[in-house]
Each structure stands twice: as structure tokens, then as C-alpha cells.
Simulated assay, not measured.
Amino acid sequence: MVFPEFRPRRMRRTETFRAMIRETRLVPEQMIYPLFVLPGKGLRQEVASMPGVFRLSVDQLAKEAKDCLALGVRSVILFGLPEKKDGLGSGAYAKNGIIQQAIRELKHKVPEMTVVTDVCLCEYTDHGHCGCLAGHEVDNDATLELLAKTALSHAQAGADMVAPSDMMDGRVSEIRTALDENSFHMVPIMSYAVKYASAFYGPFRDAAECAPQFGDRRSYQMDPANSKEALREATLDVEEGADILMVKPALAYLDIISRLHDEFDLPVAAYQVSGEYAMIKAAAEKGWIDGERVMAESLIAIRRAGADIILTYFAKEMAKLLTEGK
């Protein structure tokens, strides 16, 4: 047998060689760690469907943030569970709402932590939808004002970046205008530009107690079958002033991440969502997979597809492996 002159295995033979030519790398600074915040004191409640993920009271946030920073994870995104819910989601934009309290706590005690906030109403409405209702339909245009009020209240509390996840048409423009008119020109918007109506969100809805009380969200979140529509959604958000474009979920939509990376010159974020996390954890617990390796491989895949930023519940766990040189 005559072998070719080039043998690819030569450069796979040792870890030093493999690391030397590795094309895609993960670093902790690229990851954003989601945190769920609930009322009360001294609370750390594990989410049953998301092992290792906790709902924390405000007084527990500083310790969690310091743990993240020690591992090199410099950013968190906050999701709130209010004491009360109503039809307009007023807890989302209340001056002393749960997220507003959480922002102030983190910026006071861990000022070096970058605090990103989810801007949506689903966690705060008694019907569980992402906007206010007109009958049984989400009223897109009436919701825009409430989303802008929410984003502005987060900025006033000290948020470093806001991330609208509602998928209402025109919300990026409305939020950008509200921030700029109130001298928050330097607060960026990380838009959930391409958010699919996915079945991978189940554990999150358990954690945030935000499942719709009727119907579903397919009238405003994207159809999983569509990719051209993703480009139209992202284009609109770019034109309206988004600073970062996000794709959610991640692993089932690597093609969409890649398309956005190729089509736009803005940074692309991807959200490795609760269902993706829970499946890996469950299979690892059963001994069916090597959890650490699958975690790392899945995150590398998201980066390789073109994501500059990854929102992931694995942020701390992956950062720990990276700091240990694994």
C-alpha cells in the first residue's frame, strides 16, 4: 500500500500537537451564566428538572457571582420570579421588582460582574404569555411600551446590558429609543433576534414558573422549519439598533447560528437552553454518556458554528474544566 505524503494522524498523536492546531477554543469570558432570582432570604432551591441549577434569593446572588468570577465567567443574565403576577406583568417594570433588587445587589457587592437582564413579561403575567392580551391574543403594539419600561427600569437599577426575549415586532427600536432618551446610550441590547417556538424550553418554564396558562407561543416565536425568516428577523433587529444577535435554542439550530455569523457583522450569541442542558445531565446521570465530554463537545459545536457568546447553564462547570486545563 502506498500512503500519501500527508498523514493527518501525525498532528493528532499528542495533546500538545492537538492543542497546537486547534481551530476552535472556549474561554470562560465567552460564556454568560443564567441565574433565577426569587423573593425571600437565604433561599437556594434546586430546579428538579435541571440538576445543579438553583433558584436564589437576592441575598444569595453575590456569592454565586463571586464563584463565577473566580472561574473566569464575567457575565450573568437574570430571570425573576415575582411575588405577584397580573395581566400586564407589572412586576417586570416595578422600581423595586425582583430583578431591579437583584441588579442593585450585584452592582453593589460585585461591581466587576457584568449584569445582563432578560426583558420579557412571561415571568410576570398571570396568563404566562410574553405580552399583554387583547382577548386571547397577545397585543404586539401595546406590549412594546411595557417592554421599553422594563428595559429602562433595568438600566436605571444598574444593568450593563438588556436582552429582550419576547419576540414582539418592533421591540428593539422601542427599547433603544427609551434608553437613549433617558441618557442610557451606552447600554447595549442583546436581542433574542431568532427565537424559535421550541420544545426544548420545558425545564426553564419549570424554573421560572412561566408556562402559558392557555395556548402556546407559536404566534410570536418562530417556526422551527424556517431559516430564511431568521435572516429577516435578524435584519430588522440590526436596523432597529441591536448590538448583539442571539439564536435560541443552540444545538438544533447550528445552521442558523452559522448563517447569522456569515450574513451580519454584529456579534452572534447562542443560548444553550434548559432542555439541552437537562438532556445531557440526565443521560450522564444514567451513565449513558460521559457528561463532561458531551458538555464540552456541545459547547465547541456552538462556537464552531459561529457563536461569539454562549449563554449556558454549564458556564461554571465548563469554566472549571478549562481552568484545570482539561
Rank of each mutant, 00 (worst) to 15 (best):
M1E: 07
M1Y: 06
P4A: 06
R9K: 10
R10A: 13
R13M: 13
T14V: 10
T16L: 15
F17H: 13
F17R: 09
R18P: 04
M20Y: 14
I21D: 07
I21F: 12
R22W: 00
E23N: 08
T24L: 04
P28S: 10
Q30M: 15
K41D: 14
G42H: 06
G42S: 06
Q45M: 06
V47N: 05
M50G: 03
P51N: 06
V53D: 03
F54L: 01
F54T: 10
F54A: 04
R55K: 13
D59P: 00
D59E: 01
A62D: 08
D67K: 13
V73T: 10
S75D: 09
S75I: 01
L78G: 02
L81S: 03
D86N: 14
G89M: 01
A92C: 01
N96L: 00
G97P: 02
G97A: 01
G97D: 00
I99P: 00
V116W: 02
V116H: 05
D118T: 06
V119K: 03
L121E: 05
L121D: 04
Y124L: 06
H127S: 11
G128M: 05
G131A: 08
A142M: 12
A142P: 06
E145L: 07
L146H: 10
A151N: 08
A159D: 07
P164C: 11
S165K: 07
S165L: 05
D166I: 04
D169V: 04
R171A: 14
V172P: 14
S173Y: 11
I175F: 10
F184L: 02
F184K: 05
M186D: 08
P188K: 01
I189R: 02
S191L: 02
Y196E: 07
Y196F: 14
F204I: 04
R205T: 11
R205C: 12
A207F: 09
A207S: 08
A208R: 07
E209H: 15
Q213H: 12
F214W: 14
S219T: 14
S219M: 04
M222Q: 12
A225M: 15
N226C: 15
S227V: 14
A234E: 13
T235C: 05
L236Q: 15
L236P: 03
E239F: 05
I244D: 12
I244P: 13
P249S: 12
A252N: 08
Y253Q: 08
L254Q: 11
D255W: 01
I256E: 10
S258D: 14
E263Q: 15
L266R: 14
V268S: 13
A269E: 09
A296D: 07
E297C: 04
A301V: 04
A301W: 03
R303Q: 14
A307P: 03
D308Q: 10
I309H: 05
L322C: 08
L322Y: 12
T323W: 08
G325M: 13
K326E: 14
